[in-house]
Amino acid sequence: MSIDKETVRKVAGLARLSLTEDDLERFTPQVAGIVKWVEMLGEVNTENVAPLANVVNIDLKLRPDTANDGGYQKEILVNAPESMEGFFVVPKVVE
């Protein structure tokens, strides 16, 4: 599977990265090269191998259902580029 500019453009769209034509020229061969390189994994027969997502051999611990966090609106909003009346503000979203 070789990667062309259109593929990179589409992937950049999914990742919400605005790329210029120059960016596309630069990134396309790099991404294509890396993806081609990782395809060497195809050499290994992994038919009976289960995927491994995490190496920490512990059980997932759960927390009790207690409302003991939140209640600090100011701290939540303090780094916001735009906020108003306790809300984050973004350009109008049209459904």
Binding site: V89, V90, K92
Partner: peptide, 13 residues
């Protein structure tokens, strides 16, 4: 998201 609070903005809670 609240879309009716401001003519050009959406508010996020």
């Amino acid at each position: 998201s609240l879309h009716d609070q401001h003519p050009a903005k959406s508010f996020v809670d």
